[in-house]
Amino acid sequence: MRKNWLGTWVGFVLIMAWCLLPVVWIVSLSFKSAAETTAGSPQFFPKAWTTQNYKDIIDNPDFTRALLNSAGIALSATFLSVVLATLAAYAIARLDFRGKRAVLSLALAIAMFPVVSLVGPLFDMWRTFHLFNTWPGLVIPYMSFTLPLSIWTLSAFFREIPWEMEQAAQVDGATAWQAFRKVIVPLAAPGVFTAAILTFFFAWNEFVLAISLTSTTASRTVPAQMAYFVGADQFNPPYSQLATASVVVTVPVVILVLLFQRKIVAGLTSGAVKG
């Protein structure tokens, strides 16, 4: 038994190191001065800690604009996707209707879709519709790529909600729509919230469409902006600046994870096992 206990401890330490070392590394890099990284500084922690990088990055209008784009696009996509997914998931979990299986299969197929294969046609279509390099031009595809995950997560949550409550409301004279709005919505709120977090992660993370369907800082999101923020010499990128930008865009992720870790795990694994 004692051997087991030791093994678990070693496992715990290994997992923590695995997950957090690279994060600690970029945080440490972000406090190294630009001069230090240009000269080459292979030691883990800075020789002299400096907050200059953070001042520079906040003063960089391209970066702050990208941050605004990222936040705006990710939040709009999340909101719209979760609203549509809630309607669809309710129908799938609770109602008997034709084509239910077809909807689920479509969602599954889209979850596996190679995003890059849409870059060409979307690039062409978006130029025709004047959606190229605009916020909606990214919000629309992000919605459709997050709908499958939201629909699956939400229908799993909705199946756990007690049926009787809805039927009781209907016995009391509520229509199917009223039963949905007044009884199910409040009960479903935690599941909806989980779907929203997962959707936000996707939209905040997305890169392929972000570099393909934008051309200027007007709508370029942070991941895209960072990829172009390479500087004059491709083989000598501005390490400390990039690390600082990395830390700044990771902060919202860390906050969400810290606050809602239990919900996120439940959402991610809702499709993995029976029920």
Binding site: P42, F201, P223, M226, S246, V253, V257
Partner: peptide, 30 residues
């Protein structure tokens, strides 16, 4: 543990790529 495990999941892939590029860098990596 759950929190630390979710951080790599949530982190932007571009950021993770930069972090590892710097880790493997000949001048600045460890």
């Amino acid at each position: 543990m759950r929190t630390s495990i979710l951080i790599p999941y949530g982190i932007i892939t571009v950021v993770s790529a930069f972090a590892w590029q710097f880790t493997f860098s000949i001048n600045n990596g460890y």
